[in-house]
């Protein structure tokens, strides 16, 4: 039941797909053909337990590179749990147990040899509620590069802070008040600050857990635009409760229900021609 619509594991040589990507970027980022994008994150038969209670059942999903993959489904369906498996944030919950395989670039992230700290540097995360540190805007962005020793001296960090804020579309609004507290910004600005903070450590994948649910429609539109820009350089996985948002920002959509991955595929397909009745019921608003 779980693999209703799986991406074929990409048979293409890597160079080809990379050059294909860069052409696409030059051509103003048209919709990438989902079936031909290389797989970045691959989950195989993932089960998650909280103590004795099973929260995810045998989930297998491929997340293609440089695309936005949306995880949708009613509350409590396990989509956030799945998201938090990808950067092993579930490790912080003592009673949580994950089985199955998750690989990023064909590397098993639950391999004991993997350093979870480095994994999280490669897989950034943006949370539901904006959570800037109660430090200055500058220090918020510089935090990650500092702990990973990514920059030598203040000049390097200055450059990194500016480029991250620029890529998060926040630079023009905050460039004159970098020393003010990050918590003094508006909700939407705070969330973009969190995105800047995440991309400052130059991750490959960015996970977003309902990043707009605490924001007003204008701030939401701003973040959605940003996602579309960011996917040129990053692979994005977003959990969202808004089906319109999933339809607007994502190229791939996966529908979760009661801990099962019901269906996944190109967003267009899921929203126009779902295979499973439950998916159809959910996207037409019959439950959820």
């Amino acid at each position: 039941m779980t693999e209703a619509f799986h991406v074929e594991n990409n048979p293409q040589p890597v160079e080809e797909s990379v050059s294909g990507m860069s052409e696409a970027v030059e051509a103003g980022m048209p919709e990438v053909d989902a079936a031909h994008a290389p797989t970045k994150v691959k989950a195989d038969n993932v089960d998650v337990f909280y103590a004795e209670k099973q929260a995810l059942f045998d989930v297998s999903l491929d997340v293609p590179e440089n695309q936005v993959t949306a995880l949708i489904g009613p509350s409590g369906c396990g989509k956030s749990t799945f998201l938090r498996c990808i950067n092993r944030m579930n490790d912080t919950i003592p009673i949580c147990r994950v089985t199955g395989d998750i690989t990023i670039d064909d590397q098993d992230i639950y391999d004991p040899a993997i350093d979870v700290v480095q994994l999280r540097a490669r897989v950034g995360m943006v949370f539901q509620k904006p959570n800037p540190f109660p430090k200055s805007i500058y220090e918020n962005v510089a935090y990650g590069p500092r702990i990973h020793g990514m920059a030598q001296g203040k000049a390097d960090i200055d450059v990194l802070v500016e480029s991250s804020l620029q890529r998060a579309g926040l630079w023009n609004e905050v460039k004159d008040r970098l020393s003010e507290s990050g918590t003094s910004l508006s909700g939407g600005q705070q969330q973009r600050l969190c995105i800047a903070r995440a991309i400052a450590v130059n991750p490959d994948v960015i996970l977003m857990d309902e990043p707009c649910s605490a924001l007003d429609p204008i701030a939401t539109a701003r973040i959605e635009e940003l996602m579309d820009e960011l996917r040129q350089n990053y692979t994005i996985v977003i959990v969202t409760h808004s089906m319109q948002q999933a339809a607007r920002v994502s190229q791939r959509t996966a529908f979760f229900h009661l801990g099962y991955l019901v269906e996944s595929g190109a967003t267009e397909m899921i929203f126009t021609n779902p295979e499973d009745k439950r998916t159809q019921d959910y996207i037409t608003g019959r439950f959820g």
């Binding site: 950067n87 509620k129 935090y143």
Partner: peptide, 23 residues
């Protein structure tokens, strides 16, 4: 949420305590 934010950036637990929680 502050702990999660720091851990998700790849900080270790003790870095999180030193640089986020104690300040």
């Amino acid at each position: 949420s502050l702990r999660d934010g720091s851990l998700a950036l790849g900080a270790t637990h003790s870095e999180t305590i030193r640089r986020v929680i104690l300040p």
